[in-house]
Amino acid sequence: MTPPPGSLLTAENLYKAYGPTNALDGAGFSIHPGEVVAIMGPSGSGKSTLLHCLAGIVTPDSGTITYDGRVLSSMSDTERSALRRSEFGFVFQFGQLVPELTCVENVALPLRLNGTPRKEAERTALSWMQRLEVDDLRGKRPGEVSGGQGQRVAIARALVTGPRVVFADEPTGALDSLNGERVMELLTEAARSTNAAVVLVTHEARVAAYSDREIVVRDGKSRDMERAV
């Protein structure tokens, strides 16, 4: 099978077992540049495993993942790491900021790891922090900011390298509804402005409502609701 025309990231027939449990049982996925796709489903349905496979963090037992014409499984670990650092951005539920670094250092970190000089990295980081309305926190450490603020800092960090795909796993899971909505607005606006695709794992309908379409995962099988109707 060939990926749908124009798609940036595609998965076909993914299988992944953890011991006797089939986390993925023939799941598929596809996303276009600039698109926000929600992966929904009950707890334990396999949605996070699907996200981890798509992001090259977990290797599926079988199946094909194609990113921008390249097959992920045929890449070396080094190539996959480089891809994750330069083309993918990540936002998780919590625990993603380095507590010893200030907020601006956290946001600049992916650029520093790619070899960008400190001054330039922090200048770019600060411009992203302004867009996410957290530039006043530049000198604070993650322990000194609220959950909602920390999540905006994390989004700035996910976007700082200009990724083509942002993977967000329950990005509002630890926030109250007002903060959660603001985080979703800022994340989707920022991603749309750079034409980045967003793969959003959530079990919350109000969060999924910020997506363009949804994929439902149940018992490791996926269903693309747009193509189904």
């Binding site: 309908a205 109000r206 999924a208 409502a209 439902v216 269903r223 609701m225 189904a228």
Partner: peptide, 19 residues
């Protein structure tokens, strides 16, 4: 299950418009 999935999708469509 199919009926429920289709209904969820329809609800989400309305929720997107409201959002």
């Amino acid at each position: 299950a199919d009926l429920l999935d289709t209904q969820r999708s329809e609800h989400l469509r309305t929720m997107r418009a409201l959002t």
